[in-house]
Structure formats: C-alpha cells, structure tokens
Amino acid sequence: MKVAITSTGNTPESKLDSRFGRCSYFVIYDTDTKEMEFVINPNKEANEGAGPASVKLIASYKVEKAISGEFGFKIKSLMNEINIQMIIIQEEKTIKEIVDMLKN
C-alpha cells in the first residue's frame, strides 16, 4: 500500500508539513517495498485550488492514505470520493518517525 505524507523538505529528517495542498514535498511511501520517494509539490504557489490539484497529484501515485497536519474543506469530499483515507498528525514529527509508525 502507498501512503502520501506532506513534508517540509526532501530528506527523512524533514518535518511533517502541517498544510496539505501547499506543502513543500509529498513523500510517497510504499509499505510493502519500504521505499520512499520525495515529490516536489508544484501546487505550493498555486493562485487557487492548491488542495484539489494536490489530491490529483497524490491520486496519480495510487496512494490509499494521506498524512498531513490538516486538510482543507474543499478537498475532504474529493478524498472520500476516491477513497483516500485522511490521517491528521498534529504533533511535530519527522518523516522518519511517521514512517516508523507505519511500519509497526
């Protein structure tokens, strides 16, 4: 299963980005292969609609879960419709810590 995690940087030591649509990077983590891919978010500076565009981006990686600090109201129904589960983490955690949580 693939999981998208919003990240402030492109290393496992980077912190979780608290914003979904305008995060700096998406980490696409595969729980089967344990592989991690960092994808730069082209929607960070979008004029409008960064949320829906980011949903589109992670959906193209066929993720089943998305982890972020928050999800905007425009995208909740879209995520439900395409069956991506939203997980909110509000504590400050690194990508590595979150990936470790997914492993257990």
Binding site: E48, A50, P52, A53, A59, K62, I82
Partner: peptide, 13 residues
C-alpha cells in the same frame, strides 16, 4: 489556471 476541474485519468474521475 484555477484548478477548478478535478480530473484523475487513472480513476476515470
């Protein structure tokens, strides 16, 4: 330009 059309080709959405 405004991301007003939500389209996911892979899911035919």
């Amino acid at each position: 330009e405004y991301n007003a059309i939500f389209c996911i080709p892979e899911l035919e959405q």
